[in-house]
């Protein structure tokens, strides 16, 4: 971290460097906490039994709807299941929904964006208009339309969230491809006699994709929020499953008497979003710094 600080204070325009240093100084703790939290999640995904000795589906009617205590850190739900255990065991399902949906959205976006960015005026025009039309649909609405047609399930949840986020990414990819394709090094590649396919694969794509790394990090948190919003509305994973969104849906009926059933799964989602946002912003600044140096 100190290496970065000295690097930025040495480079060029003073006000910019100063503001970068200030940002780093301010948020240095953020990325570290994010990584710690994400490591905790990795443990929860790989072997949840390390973190809790309760079983996520073990029913205990004698202890239903108990407030958080030493025995049950996050309290218990209406069937006496330990909420901490459910949150820990639910991590893998919820995170995979977020990751797969983001990956799907990105894949669609890259295809549309590259075709738009490299295609002729007409193709680009058509793709831009299509993206604009899709943009008029709020992502949640697109997802609802999708769920109406194909019914509520985890699969349609993932597909609808992924497709809902694609237009935003696609605009970004398209802009990047257009910016990159006119760069001198692409021209140089043409002059060297490289084939179009090779230029696309080795020169344009890697350079255009870099900002997507940041967006992807940010997008995972967002996808989890959308997916859980749909689950909260009862359109996602079915309740007994230990999945954060499904837990939110199940806890909705007990909001007034047992806030912990909604609070903790939701808090996990907030923490994931914060962690990925903080990490994404940190990555963005690192990449930006490298860009200005080059």
């Amino acid at each position: 971290m100190t290496a970065i600080d000295s690097h930025t204070s040495l480079s060029g325009v003073s006000s910019r460097a100063a503001s970068t240093t200030r940002l780093l100084g301010r948020l240095r703790i953020g990325p570290i906490l994010s990584v710690v939290f994400l490591l905790f999640l990795v443990v929860a995904v790989v072997d949840p039994s390390i973190l809790t000795h309760y079983q996520p589906l073990a029913v205990d009617p004698a202890h239903s709807l108990e407030a958080p205590s030493v025995a049950h850190w996050f309290g218990t739900d209406q069937s006496g299941r330990d909420i901490f255990a459910r949150v820990v065991y639910g991590a893998s399902a919820s995170l995979s929904i977020g990751v797969i949906a983001t990956a799907l959205g990105m894949a669609v976006a890259v295809i549309l964006g590259v075709i738009g960015g490299l295609g002729g005026r007409f193709v680009d025009g058509v793709i831009s208009r299509v993206l604009e039309i899709l943009f008029a649909f709020p992502a949640l609405l697109l997802a609802l339309l999708f769920v109406t047609i194909f019914g509520a399930s985890v699969t349609s949840l993932i597909i609808s969230v992924g497709l809902g986020s694609a237009p935003g990414y696609a605009r970004m990819v398209r802009g990047q491809v257009i910016a990159v394709k006119n760069a001198p090094y692409v021209e140089a590649s043409y002059v060297l006699g490289h084939s179009r396919a090779r230029i696309l694969r080795q020169t344009i794509l890697p350079n255009a994709m870099r900002p997507l790394l940041v967006l992807g990090t940010l997008g995972i948190g967002q996808s989890i929020v959308w997916a859980s919003s749909l689950s909260f509305l009862g359109l996602g994973a079915a309740p007994p499953a230990p999945e954060w969104g499904a837990m939110l849906a199940a806890g909705r009926d007990f909001i007034s008497s047992a806030w912990w059933g909604e609070f903790f799964p939701g808090a996990m989602i907030v923490l994931v979003t914060l962690a990925t946002t903080s990490l994404g912003r940190y990555l963005a600044r690192r990449l930006e710094g490298r860009g200005s140096e080059a």
Partner: peptide, 25 residues
Amino acid sequence: MTATATATATEPTRFEDDLDSDFSA
């Protein structure tokens, strides 16, 4: 955008390079 749903912190910068867009100027 998107966002909805709440949107990510970089949602605005997402379109910065897209000078042709009408809506997300």
